[in-house]
Design a protein around this nucleic acid. Structure first.
Lengths: 223, 223
DNA sequence: CCGAGAATGGCAACATCCTGCCGAGCTGGC
DNA sequence: GCCAGCTCGGCAGGATGTTGCCATTCTCGG
């Protein structure tokens, strides 16, 4: 260190396939107290699924176990997936948040070990397992940033997903600042109907004014 | 790899102090074509400053050099820093975005090399230099997520920073869905004056409706 | 103290938005 | 066909928001 430099050997291990990954780090899941996880779909961390039994065991363990999972909003368009998410939340006490951005599959275990999913080659996905403290801290920080900008599942619930499916055009026009008259004309609707849509939207957003609705809509990534 | 495992040696190098870091990776800055950088203040990447001459050289190089820098919004409250940011943008053609979240100091060079800032010990900050491809890709993805949720400096300009300093109360009340009458009363203002504030705010946000203003305010992290 | 300029707030006219009411039209079951 | 249940959309009237106008008040330099 006298040259201001430290070489770190074997700080990164690349693992091929979930089977192997699970063999390597599966035992850690039994004692984890802080699990941060990001995924684009429910299938990615199959190892995580298999560890449901382990996770279930955590329910009986002392409180203070924190499980955070972050998924893409697209996942909620599938009602089966949405239901599964809610199940995990209720059963394991996991905090689940929804983000609108694509996000690299990532797991951070107890702020000490990072797993980053890589490309799929020869049918097997590769995983980088990182233990080097500074690197883990850095990745954790980036995860925290994404986490803070994501929305809690309880807020971003099926109702909101519905809104997005039903009224994207209304949201667009509102966010463009278009007046009701013009917006209705552009949608081929009566002004009354358009305003009904807006009222439904505001109701669903729990907003008492259009300004507030705008804030919430943006919060939820609807616009 | 027959055991599904690859050990990667010296994939992470920990460097102590900016001097040393700059000696190690400084030469890369001369030929970089894709620089992604996140920082909480202007002082963190002093090496980056010293490389201004190098960066200036990139101006003369073939186009296609992409420089992205991401800073915290708090930085803009200081007008000197805000001016410096604008200078960098104009001089180097850097894309500059503002985020409201704290963010770990990070540099990604040409999507091949990652530097994560660590803790300061004995007066020197430590840096993790990572070259392992899967890890770099993972960090890059997290950076991209944060980048997408950040706001361009051109939008988040001094005017908006002013608004935040001048009208936080108005923003609060608006975002709570409070009616003008009640809001004015609560602020001890006349309704006319309160509405003047709202109008100024909407004007500064370039919004044509309160809904749009709500969206923009949220976008800019003002509420 | 004086005066210029900015900030305030009441008033009014107007624009926009919100919503109850009701009739028109559409759809599916019988 | 006929009815029930639904959405659609015009209308009206009230609620809320927007803006110009102007008198009053405040602020600050002279």
């Amino acid at each position: 260190m006298s040259d201001g430099l430290t070489r770190v050997n074997e700080a990164v291990t690349v693992v091929r396939g979930e089977e192997e990954l699970f063999r390597r780090i599966g035992h850690l899941l039994a004692t984890v107290t802080d699990l941060a996880c990001a995924a684009n779909d429910l299938a990615t961390w199959a190892a995580d699924h298999r560890s449901d039994e382990l996770a279930a065991a955590t329910v009986g363990r002392a409180a203070g176990v924190r499980i955070r999972k972050m998924y893409r909003s697209a996942l909620l368009l599938d009602s089966v997936s949405a239901h599964e998410l809610a199940r995990r939340r209720d059963q394991f006490g996991a905090e689940i948040r929804i983000t609108h951005e694509e996000i690299n599959e990532t797991i951070v275990i107890d702020r000490r070990l990072v797993i980053l999913a890589g490309d799929v080659r020869a049918g097997q996905r590769s995983y980088s397992v990182i233990t080097q403290p500074e690197t883990v801290q850095g990745v954790m920080s980036l995860f925290e940033t994404a986490w803070r900008s994501a929305t809690d599942l309880a807020v971003y619930d099926a109702q909101v997903a519905d809104i997005r499916r039903l009224a994207p055009a209304v949201l667009d026009l509102l966010s463009q600042g278009v007046k009701d008259e013009a917006a209705a004309r552009r949608l081929g609707l009566g002004v009354r109907t358009y305003r009904r849509r807006v009222a439904e939207l505001m109701d669903a957003l729990g907003a008492g004014s259009r300004f507030q609705a705008g804030v919430r809509a943006r919060e939820l990534g609807l616009v």
